[in-house]
Design a protein around this nucleic acid. Structure first.
Lengths: 211, 211
DNA sequence: GAGATTATCACATCATCATGTAATACTATA
DNA sequence: TATAGTATTACATGATGATGTGATAATCTC
C-alpha cells in the first residue's frame, strides 16, 4: 500500500523539523513537503496533491486560515489538521469555518498526532474538549425572544415576502389584498421595527432572522 | 459534597429504568427525576433545578429538541446530553443548534455515560467522531466563488451601505459623491446582480454574504 | 496610443414608496 | 356589551427610486 503523503506548513524551523521526524518515524507515512510559509500554497498542493495537510494556524504574513480558504476555494478536499498553541485562540473557529477538518494543540503533538491523523482519515474531526465546546457554543442559536417585535402573523407573512424583493404590487397579488392594505401593513411593520424604509426593514429582518 | 442531581427524559420505560440504574450505581450522583415525556419540562426543570439533564432526542409528541429549545428559552443553562439511537440522525444538528451540550449514542450508554457526564461538567462537549464531523461540516462556509458578480470595490462599498438601509442621499453624503453618481453605481450593481430593486439587491447581498 | 474599465456628474421621466388621515368589519376578551 | 387588537380598503401628496441617455476624466492594458 502507498504511504500516506503529508504536507507541513509551519514557520518555526525547529517545530517543522520535529513534526517531520514524527512523520518519518512511521513507515506508513511519507513527508511530501515541509514549508515555512503559505505564499504558494495553492500551486504546491495542486501540483503534489498530498493526502493530508498539517497547517500552523498562526504564521507571519498570510495566516494558515487564509491558506485553508484558498485551498478549499480551489475545490481541493484534502483533509487539513490545524496546529495551534492555544486552544482559546479565537482564530480556531475561523479556521474551522474556512474548511479545516480538525485541529491539534502543539503541546499534544507528540502524543496525539497519530491518533488525530487516524481520526481525520476515518472521517472524524479531532479536537480538544474545550474546542468542541466552542464549536457547539457557536452553533447555539440565541433563544428567540419569542416574537420580539410583536408582529402579527399577517405582518410576518408580508415582511417575508418583502424580504424576497417583492414589490407592493406583487405582495398585493400574492395575498389577494389591495395595494393599500399592503401599505397599511408595512406602515405598521415599520413602526414595530423602528425603521423607515423597505431596505432597513429587510436588512433587520434577515439579520435578526425574523423571516 | 452534594451529589450531582440528574433528570432523565426517555419514553422507553426499560431504557429509562436502566439509565436510572446507572445513575443510582454511582454514589456521587442522584436521580432527581425520570419522565416519559416532556410536556411539562419547563416547570419540572425550573422547579427542581437539576445539575444535568439526559434527554432522548426522539420522543413521541413533543420531541427532545423542542424540549431543549424551551429550556434554553427560559434562560436555564443546565447541561443537556442528548441520547439517540443513530448518529446520522439529521436531528442531531438541530438538537445542537437548539442548545444541547453534547450527545451520546444509546449503544454506548453503559460504556460512556460516566465519561460523557464528566466531560460535560468539565466544560467539554462529548460527541462521537462522526457527529463531530457533521458539526464541523455544517460550519464550513461554501468557498466564495471569488467575487462571483465582479463587483468593483466601489460598488461593494455602496452595496454594503445600501444594505444597512441608507438612502441614495445618505450614501452620496457618506462617500462625498453626487447622488447621480450613486444612481449610476447602483444601476451597475443591479445589472451585475440581475436584480431590479434595492430590496432584491439587499436580500441577495445579505443572503449570499456579499456584504 | 487606442481601447477597456472605472468613477464621476447631469438631466429627464415614470414608477414606486413613505406617510398621514379615515373608515369598516371581525374577532377576542374583559 | 364595550374595548382592544387585527385586517381590510381608500385617497392624497411629497419623497425616493429605477432607468435611459450622454458625457468627462483617470488608469490600466495591449
Amino acid at each position: 500500500m502507498k504511504p500516506l503523503s503529508v504536507f507541513i506548513f509551519e514557520d518555526n524551523a525547529l517545530l517543522r523539523e520535529s513534526i517531520g521526524s514524527l512523520i518519518l518515524a512511521k513507515p506508513e507515512m511519507k513527508l511530501l513537503g515541509a514549508f515555512e510559509n503559505v505564499h504558494t500554497v495553492k500551486d504546491q498542493v495542486s501540483k503534489y496533491n498530498p493526502d493530508l495537510i498539517l497547517m500552523d494556524i498562526d504564521m507571519p504574513g498570510r495566516s494558515g486560515i487564509e491558506a485553508v480558504k484558498e485551498i478549499r476555494q480551489s475545490n481541493i478536499q484534502t483533509p487539513i489538521i490545524m496546529l495551534t498553541v492555544f486552544d482559546d485562540n479565537t482564530h480556531v473557529l475561523d479556521a474551522i469555518r474556512a474548511g479545516a477538518s480538525g485541529y491539534l494543540l502543539k503541546k499534544h503533538l507528540s502524543t496525539k498526532l497519530y491518533d488525530s491523523i487516524e481520526e481525520v482519515l476515518a472521517g472524524g474531526a479531532p479536537m480538544s474538549p474545550s474546542v468542541a465546546r466552542m464549536v457547539i457554543a457557536s452553533m447555539h442559536q440565541k433563544p428567540q425572544l419569542e416574537n420580539t417585535y410583536q408582529l402579527t402573523s399577517r405582518e410576518k407573512e408580508i415582511l417575508t415576502s418583502l424580504s424576497k424583493g417583492n414589490s407592493y404590487k406583487l405582495i398585493a397579488a400574492q395575498f389577494e389584498i389591495s395595494i393599500d392594505t399592503v401599505r397599511t401593513h408595512i406602515k405598521k411593520i415599520y413602526e414595530k421595527l423602528h425603521v423607515h424604509s423597505q431596505t432597513e426593514a429587510v436588512s433587520k429582518a434577515i439579520n435578526e432572522r425574523l423571516v
